[in-house]
Nucleic acid binder design. Sequence first.
RNA 1: CGGAGCGUAGCGCAGCCUGGUAGCGCACCUGCUUCGGGAGCAGGGGGUCGGAGGUUCGAAUCCUCUCGCUCCGACCA
Length: 445
Amino acid sequence: MRLSRYFLPVLKENPAEAQIVSHRLMLRAGMIKQQAAGIYSWLPMGFKVLKRLEQIVHEEQVRAGHIPLLMPTLQPADLWRESGRYDDYGQEMLRIKDRHDRDMLYGPTNEEMITDIFRSHVNSYKDLPLTLYHIQWKFRDEVRPRFGVMRGREFLMKDGYNFDLTREDALHAYNRHMVSYLRTYERMGLTAIPMRAASGPIGGDNTHEFLVLADTGESEVFYDARVPALKLGDRAVDYDNREEVAGICEEFTTLYARTDETHDEAVYAEVPEEHRKVGRGIEVGQIFYFGTKYSESMGATVVTPDGSRVPVEMGSHGIGVSRLLGALIEANHDDKGIIWPEGVTPFHCGIVNLKQGDTGTDAACEGLYKALRDLGLDPLYDDRDERAGAKFATMDLIGLPWRITVGPRGLANGVVELTSRRSGESEEMSAAAAVARIAQIYDGV
RNA sequence: CGGAGCGUAGCGCAGCCUGGUAGCGCACCUGCUUCGGGAGCAGGGGGUCGGAGGUUCGAAUCCUCUCGCUCCGACCA
């Protein structure tokens, strides 16, 4: 993309309403525009990152054997009357009437609807196990939306639902989700720690929340310092292998890690003192096993091998996709702006032309731009007629992890400059070498 | 939902107390000079002061109502 033809309305000054750094940077970097309290338009670059996160979530869900579908944002109230949650959910649910005066609602989640789909089409144990998920906009009419997309009223969420015959099968689904989530966050360059959680209104006994450590997090967290160092890495996981999947879960949940809701001083005291850490975290996902809570109230049953009919075992699992953007920035920024991890960056690298209009630098930049694109990479070429300082400031603000700087001074020596946004370190090399390096960095990302 | 505050140009703000017909910085447009970390000079465009009502000869300013937004606390992906 050529910046002169893109739509990237960056702000030089901090918008007054944004208090936390991710909100401020998303506004300044021209990623979002607020339309109402907790409701945002996603401008091109914000939308690009959001789509990238969505894609990673999809890939990891499919890898785990889960099946995508799409349910609507608007739902009939009757489904929720059946489960009993229409009255329970309270004012957080946005209720709407259509022209025929029918009660509708903007879905805050989809347990009822997925259960309805299931019971309409599945009757036999032979169709199990089954895990369906979608990535769809939700609405929860929060009393006090804040922190930009981290606590919006409208938000994009991946929610998945497993249907199993037995409790053991359902717990395997639970574990499968935990591992797929670990992998998802890791690909995004985030360290998200599974922590035992309280169940909340969705209900259920087994539940973990995934927390990204950040000073601005809303939850207080207590954990063993060795937990954030745990990595899934690129090990191959057979998601159908129960022992293997359970083993990974054990690996990641044995050491102490809890939020203030489930914190237990007595257990925490057993953690060696030098490993005890207290901090703050942003919740970016949660997994639940809730058994037959919805299948019983809504009649989602299957016929077993012996001919009897039993309610299915279920769980639901969510990732706050739009919130992840905020969490990513909270975890990856400095005083100049965002620092995108390679896995989620909106553009692979930036090209800064220090002397726009100069035949030599223009040609060198065009050459780089074409070479990178020919390799399937997506560079952002700052071809605006701006001064060097302005271009550098924009690049730092929007946080592309790599920048190639092209100026007459370097070109006279046959070199361009490759700079890491994260470390700030620069290296001079030929244009061809810079292209090769970028390609190598993104190989396999 | 309790408490506090803010709405004046695209963004950041001053003016309001003490009414007299709107200003500053950035951004934008034009020209010249600049050009390796948010340039300088000169000129220019843009605001029914959130909305409605009231007081007054006169309202951004005072009064009433209303809408929106933010922050602090209790609740949540």
